[in-house]
Design a protein around this nucleic acid. Structure first.
Lengths: 106, 106
DNA sequence: TTATATACTTCGTGATACGATGTATCTCGC
DNA sequence: GCGAGATACATCGTATCACGAAGTATATAA
């Protein structure tokens, strides 16, 4: 998928993955890999951004000697997903506009 | 709509508007205003980009003493719209992933 | 011991939407 | 004739963001 197209989608994908269950970076990438590709640098940037925006909270836990930073979704994060569902309606309108065979050019 | 969400959509909206019939900047903004907001500076940037990418060609015509730059869509531009239709399928998958009520968190 | 998987971080770059600002002409009301 | 508003296009600077590259560190398997 085009990098630009991803821009409106990555945030909500990450939020949705964490809404299912608290999770951490490495796991999120694996969970999302089936529906959207994103690199580690991208993911960790997004996590930091969403936390700063109050959509996620963190807790650090040890697992097999390695540290894991678990993310938990907040009410605000859930609100962002709801907002996306409204945006989706606008996107549907755009999709219809774009695909509707348009007129007499060519 | 969020600025970030628009990023994957604006290009194809502009292409689709021009596919209907050759058009020029000011007219395109008016035609698109019903489905998506975009400023003049954004539009003219996009038009220049799409022309540079070989998706549009231009011809300048005079109308009431003012110059108008008419844009015409190329095969490549039409191809970009077709590509978007494929991307849309991926976006649908993402939409389902995001909206599917997810599990036991909270 | 070497490679691979796990786990997170930082830095620099390129793409791009947008507000602000500028230029220029036409039309309409007064 | 003059100011206001619509028409028409262009440029500049800024903020946001996805991503590759590179680094740090530990556990496990070959």
């Amino acid at each position: 998928m085009e990098t630009q197209t991803k821009r409106g989608l990555l945030d909500v994908c990450v939020l949705a993955a964490i809404r299912k269950a608290d999770s951490y970076g490495y796991q999120i990438i694996k969970d999302l890999s089936e529906i959207i590709e994103l690199s580690e640098s991208t993911l960790y940037t997004i996590l930091k951004r969403l936390e700063a925006a109050g959509m996620l909270t963190t807790r650090t836990a040890e697992h097999d000697g390695r540290l894991r930073k678990y993310y938990h979704i907040t009410e605000r994060g859930i609100g962002r997903i709801a907002e996306f569902e409204n945006e989706w309606k606008e996107m549907m309108t755009i999709y219809h506009f774009v695909t509707k065979e348009g007129g007499s050019n060519e």
